[in-house]
Nucleic acid binder design. Structure first.
Lengths: 129, 129
DNA sequence: TTTATAATTAGAATAATTCTAAATTTAGGA
DNA sequence: TCCTAAATTTAGAATTATTCTAATTATAAA
């Protein structure tokens, strides 16, 4: 196993955030000052090929790296914040409806996060009051 | 409405493919030889903000622009090909399970497309025969 | 028509990621 | 332990997709 991959995997698996390569690089530098951004990318790509981590792509931001454990994502349509949500597994429903064999799926749900809802209510209140 | 937006919207709405900005640009040039790639991007971003088209982001390829009409996506895990699939709407299930208000969602299903399944079977046959 | 606003152009700039080639590290025999 | 081959890392250039800037042109409204 490569020099950094265990630490990088651990970072991803223990982080509550969805880290970018840059963030992982900065975090790694604390313990491995010599590490270079390209090595972070190399490791992330290897870990992803080995099926040990997930990549999360969202429009307009760099890729984020995530634990493998099955879960879905909420994306706030106003501020873009990404959070996890644990829904039931839709695999069998998809397979029944489509007849295909599902290897995995990626479900991103657009919603308004509580902060944005609050902010929008405040704005409305100020306009009308 | 802007000079090109109607044609671009039409291209997207009538295409069976999931076009990239580059492909839309090349297609537009046939009728509008003076058009420039930046204008295609401007128009696509405007159409997207207006909610008239969808953006589809897949790891490792440029963004693709898609009709708004609700549908889901199949992504072949071997060759990466993207195709449409029409599944039932999971919105109410998601809302019941989570308690959030779903604005929309984006479901990408990883599978093996028929061509890849065939190719893999051929490879296996050659190895064993 | 005049004017203001919006869209377009050309091309530079940016940001994220990959690539290249050389150096270093690692792992597995001899 | 030493040697060798393969894998990883490094530094920095290159690439790609997309955005930005400023000047120009088109559009629509008064």
């Amino acid at each position: 196993m490569s020099r950094y991959s265990k630490k990088i995997l651990n970072l991803i698996n223990t982080s509550c955030e969805h880290l970018t390569a840059e963030q992982i690089y900065l975090e790694m530098k604390k313990e491995e000052p010599g590490i270079v951004l390209a090595s972070v990318y190399n490791n992330l790509n290897r870990l992803h090929e080995e099926g040990l981590i997930r990549k999360v792509v969202i429009e307009g931001s760099p890729e984020r790296y995530d634990k493998m454990l099955k879960h879905d994502h909420l994306v706030c349509s106003r501020c873009g914040k990404l959070t996890d949500i644990h829904l039931s597994d839709f695999t069998s429903q998809i397979e029944e409806q489509s007849g295909i064999k599902v290897l995995s799926y990626d479900l991103k749900i657009n919603y308004l996060c509580p902060e944005c809802i609050r902010q929008m209510e405040n704005i409305r209140r100020n306009e009308n009051g």
